[in-house]
Design a binder for these strands. Structure first.
Lengths: 206, 206
DNA sequence: ATCGTTTCCTAGTGATCGTTATAAAAGCCT
DNA sequence: AGGCTTTTATAACGATCACTAGGAAACGAT
């Protein structure tokens, strides 16, 4: 049981001298604020309080550290796609997404904007594979929302003439856009108002 | 008259061996596709067909070349703020902005997405001043749209209860978000549908 | 043809990029 | 205490970063 729940418990050798998760959170905040490519390994090791060999031993390389930071970020929002699937309705799922974005983009103790939306939009050729990985995650969340909308259309909760791709695309464009607005200085009240505005065009239940 | 309309006509010395504007357009396309920081001077000189000293003589440095490329980009959309001011109504200004974004983000001969929206969202500390310059432009366009909305509210074209900051913020979030969607592969039809969806929540003229 | 001016390319500047070889240090085991 | 394993820090790797001397080349003016 012990070897299953924690299969990689170290039994010999010099112990880690730093808190791996705390270091990961530090890296996440740096990527969150400055993006993937503009954050250097030197910046990371300074913020994480470790030296480069420790970073590479613990996380592989910069790319894998970043992807792990993204995982940790999305887990912190408690598995976005699952919340969409389990929402009471597509409308509630959309509203949840918009409100979570507005709140997450304007946290007091976190950088402005959204790590998923803004840390790797454009990239050099070297980072294009990482960019595509992030784009896959973004498209996956949008697809989950679209599927949730289609389910409500089939169930008759939404009018049969509703365009699922359009609605999901609209919500997702607003989520992505709010991140840039937040980085440009927009506050929580403004983003919440934008979320309300985006929901105003949602098809009414007849 | 000649010295006023073209004050910098060269009268002596070796002539430029390249088309300055064509080189600027090449640079603009590179910044457009890969963003400001991920585009290196070596990438630029290769695409522009010139050597680094020629680039620095003609454009100053990477930062000024980028800002000039942004100017050229916005001029290509024929002075965005002016179009907002001159539009028949705030509603038409918003629709114009959304449609222009949907079309501009998905041109056949241009990179996907919007140079203004996506080329410098996150940045290293070194590029933060450039980022702030771009953020100023973004906020300026949003402020112009907001002012146009407030004008229509005062004129009674829009209901007096309308929230100008919310409406302008919503339109602008969609414009910014569409750029990321385009970079992630969304096509023109989808972005146009999103533009329609965003306009659906616009206050109806009574 | 020579001069002054401007642009051209070659080759390089020091700094920083992501990453790693090396070996000392620190723990558990027998 | 002496091995065995793993992490540690120092110091560097070659490549690329933005940028620029230095001198040859190409023009108009005289």
């Amino acid at each position: 049981m012990d070897s299953l729940s924690a299969p990689f418990v170290r039994r010999t050798g010099r112990p880690l001298s730093f808190d791996r998760d705390a270091a990961l959170v530090s890296a996440m905040h740096l990527f969150w604020r400055h993006g993937y490519e503009a954050t250097s390994v030197a910046d990371l090791t300074r913020a994480m309080g470790i030296t480069p060999p420790s970073l590479y031993a613990a996380f592989g390389d910069k790319r894998r550290l970043f992807l792990e930071a993204v995982d940790r970020y999305l887990g912190g929002i408690e598995d976005v796609e699952q919340r969409i699937v389990c929402a009471a309705s597509a409308r509630e799922a959309a509203r949840d997404l918009l409100v979570a974005a507005a709140l997450g983009d304007t946290g007091d103790d976190t950088p402005p904007g959204c790590l998923l939306a803004s840390s790797l939009v454009t990239s050099s050729k070297e980072a294009e594979a990482v960019r595509e990985t992030l784009a896959d995650i973004r498209r996956g969340i949008e697809a989950a929302l679209r599927a949730r909308i289609e389910r409500d259309i089939r169930k008759g909760v939404l009018p049969s003439g509703s365009d699922a791709e359009m609605l999901a695309g609209h919500v997702f464009a607003v989520v992505q856009g709010m991140s840039t607005l937040a980085k440009d200085g927009a506050g929580r009240g403004k983003l919440m108002a934008i979320a309300d505005s985006a929901m105003a065009c949602w098809p009414q239940v007849s």
